[in-house]
Design a protein around this nucleic acid. Sequence first.
DNA 1: GCCGTTTTCGGCCCGACTGTTTTCAGTCG
Length: 583
Amino acid sequence: MYQNINKELAKIFENMGNIYDFLEDKFRALAYHRAAQIVDSLPDDIRNLIQSGDIHHIRGIGSGIEEKIEEYIKTGKIRKYEDLKQLVPPDFLELMEVPGFGPKTLKRIHQEFGISTKEELIKALKDGRVASLKGFGEKKVQNMLKGLELYEKTQKRLLLWEALQIGKMLLEKLKVLKEVKNVELAGSLRRRKETVGDIDILVACEEKDRQKVLDYFTSLEDVKEVIAKGDTKASVMIYEKDRQVDLRVLNPDEWGSGLQYFTGSKEHNVHFRDIAKSKGLKVSEYGVFDVKTGEKIAGKTEEEVYKAVGLQWIPPEMREDRGEIELALEGKMPKLVELSDIKGDLHIHSTWTDGINTIEEIAKFVLKNYKYEYIALTDHSKAVRVAHGLNEEDVLRYMEEIDKINKKLGINFIKKGVEVDILPDGSLDLPDEILSKLDWVVASIHTQFNRDNTDRIIKAMENPYVCVIGHPTGRTFGSREGYQLSEEILKVAKETNTALEINAQPTRMDLPDIWIKKAVEIGVKLVISTDSHSLSNFGYMEIGVSLARRGWAKREDILNTYSWEEIERFKQEKRAKFSIIKR
DNA sequence: GCCGTTTTCGGCCCGACTGTTTTCAGTCG
């Protein structure tokens, strides 16, 4: 009946917010936009929250919106929404997302010309009718048309990995300049969101050097076109991925407040400022100020900005207004997992299936470039035909090969693993007899993504030899939304000592952050893996760790921050549980 | 529509930029 009720409701509330914007009911619009954001980031099926009554504890959802959620659950519709839709031309809901197309502008055009479709609107922009309106003009119209073009082009967001490579490259180039006192990525890229719209970079320098820094930036060889350039800001298009990069220049003594402000998220900042306000303070990108005296009390570093408002510093990955502000107020910020905590990679493919390097090449490469204590080779099982998955006999030969290479290397570095397929009925693609001989078993779904896979996953977790569920939601950016997880899966994961994977492939980034957060709360162990198919893939560990941090994971939540002996213990505990249960 | 150790009514983040304006409205992040 409902594919993904949270997403559906979030979309409806988003639209209702837009409609209220159009109707110039500003604050009601704000409430619905907030509700949309909240519902969208709930890890749980919202029906559970209604049932348990926990919905009351969520800030931003009041009785009015709760009633509408209930109505939608019961009837599949919200009457108020159906009524509201009649008041706005359908095309306008989408158009409100286009830069330059605000509610006031659209409403005016609608009233003046009776225009209600996108097509008619474009025509009126082009034939000069809109430009002739009082308060409008040629330039505004040109900007609207440009906004439309940009909107269509940048609908596709960059993957975090891609954006990070570009961002880091530009940071290095800016660091070369001696006038640059500080330089850092900002926006969703600094928060390491799974996908990124445009790339924001901040620079601190003395006021007299601003122009020099901006000139240097806009004349980099990577720049295809300079879109805008002022005293404090420049926007360019770069050749790589045809992306917009914004550079903002700050004064050194405003570095902390500027960085805090431009990192966002918007929701985090709004909440943060709200708290500042309640304490008689005002926060802007220029600093924290005492409202009464106007005195500036912080701004140089982010730490002092947060501290001035009574909060601990908050890692950028957590700044999504998902409770981190309350935690920081209470002084209870967790110490998040770091890249340097990682002791090994437990999901790797070789030439035995669809990887492009031999096991030996992989082992030597990793030993040389990473300070890992172990890796697990986990080629596919036979159900994955396209990858020429391994059958029972292949697995035995695979194990012999790994023994041979370990012996050659002189250390027991490579663990013998497999990525076994979870078949449609939840059974596994290799028998227990084989699985029991292996050091590490990843169980994954590679077929029938578009259905509820809860039963399949639970059945797989109940196999005593399965260590971890690979890419648990099956999502891939740009092609598949993935199937819903459930509380039940987390519960069973915890009970059975089965870990869940945080797959760091840039197109997967799976588990999603909100599920990681939930798993951490419940105490489910996680494994950050690159799912490497070539040597360059091992670098994905960095964004896997970022993703874990977005889900508030600490070192102890991540299994591959432990020594191999400790991992063995985790496995043994699972097997012990099952010898009791199964008898 | 939401929210409350200054409030159950009266607020709702803050500042820059742009274009169209002689003092500001609209949009954006």
